[in-house]
Design a protein around this nucleic acid. Structure first.
Lengths: 229, 229
DNA sequence: TTTGTTAAATGTGATTTAGACACTTAAATT
DNA sequence: AATTTAAGTGTCTAAATCACATTTAACAAA
């Protein structure tokens, strides 16, 4: 028989966020040192519990916003983890979300509440519970998404150079890319605005800044265009 | 502040399965007529509630096995749905799974408990709650997976003809494919065993039967092969 | 035994896409 | 004016994809 409502077990549902950032060189994740038991003092993802009155998306936004003060963060549900003993304290499931934050706001975030700290994904510390597994899964998801949707742009400041974009994709995909081929490909997509402005910090010649053109992108999607990088 | 365990709300966590089948022509899903309130008498996915002592994967297997008696069904977690009012009865979240069942076992399944019935995905009835949304999401997921992992084979009997395989992929992708190109592509993958046996039901000449070679597939994966259909 | 019927099986050439690869240019510094 | 530094740019080759039509095996009917 199907269970009926009255006999069914209720559970705690946590929500943990894998927050990705990018600092021009490396993919980073934001971790906190847990200030409560169990596993107090160890590193973990940022998380909280779902309230009865909110959806998971709302909870994820609440947790992130509270942490960073940021609105309109790219957020996507990843997976619900349910090993019976994943949290030694009490039977708790956790739905993992991943977030992409652009580097202009990094500093602000890291200074927020909690002892939050950015780590390169390669040299992040061991995490509590199954948080390590969550991070792995998030990286795989990010990798797949980044080549089929323009979510990579979420990790960059509004104006960026081609090199920055390339470095970002190299970090996400974990492979070196050819400069000319990369630029050709990106230009073929025809969803960037080339600004008159140049970034002069990196060279004498200066490199042109670009902006993601969401309008154009949406319109192209409408017309059946598929992003493929 | 992060919520602590004691103050956090507990919720009911349901689990609903989108069960896909294939009948040589059409992609199908298995639905049941609900025999309890709320929404008694309406069509819904097959589901149940998570028990405190099991993982979601285990619950999904339990629910499916109970329904069909089948073991070793392809199952994958899809998404956790959490709209506050999705179930008018009580605050209930639901993690959706999708399952692939091969047609040899269709009859057996449909004769199982409940008034379960197969529907073409195009002309399925309206479903309760957010089950329609779940089905849509499952179809999209199936479509993406089927071209990057050989899960399509899960929907066919052990021995199948090339045409059956092609029809299946046409049903999943919802587009017509060219026979020669399809066969060339499949043969290039080199993960099928061509049997001496022929299927004589469809023509005078008869068409060769094939089998998916899991051993060979796994070995190729080992060697860095990526399935791409 | 020949002929007809039905669906299965098969291959090639054209086009498009992806990948490798190296020199020139702009702007600031000395 | 000469030097330095990173930015910007194009072509050729290989591989993958796509479009496309005829032949073959098996049985049935004459």
């Amino acid at each position: 028989m199907l269970s009926t409502y009255s006999t069914a077990d209720k559970v705690l549902l946590a929500l943990d966020c894998i927050i990705f950032g990018f600092d021009q060189h490396q993919l980073k994740i934001l971790l906190i040192k847990r200030d409560f038991e169990p596993e107090k003092g160890k590193w973990s993802l940022i998380g909280g519990f779902l309230k009865r009155t909110e959806t998971l998306d709302e909870a994820a936004n609440r947790i992130l916003q509270h942490l960073s003060g940021l609105d309109d963060i790219y957020l996507e549900q990843l997976y619900t983890f349910s090993e019976v003993d994943r949290d030694p304290g009490e039977r708790t499931l956790s739905t993992a979300y991943y977030a992409l934050i652009n580097s202009e706001n990094h500093t602000q975030v890291a200074k927020g509440a909690y002892s939050a700290q950015w780590f390169n994904i390669e040299d992040a510390p061991n995490l509590i519970f199954d948080h390590g597994e969550m991070v792995e899964k998030a990286i795989l998801r990010l990798r797949r998404r980044a080549v089929s949707k323009p979510i990579g742009f979420e990790l960059l400041p509004e104006k960026f150079t081609m090199l920055q974009l390339q470095k970002l994709y190299e970090a996400i995909l974990d492979e070196k890319l050819d400069k000319r081929n990369f630029i050709n490909k990106v230009n073929a997509l025809d969803i960037l605005i080339k600004l008159d402005e140049k970034d002069m910090t990196s060279s004498r010649k200066g490199s042109y800044l670009y902006q993601f053109d969401k309008q154009k992108y949406d319109q192209k999607i409408e017309e059946g265009f598929t992003f493929k990088l």
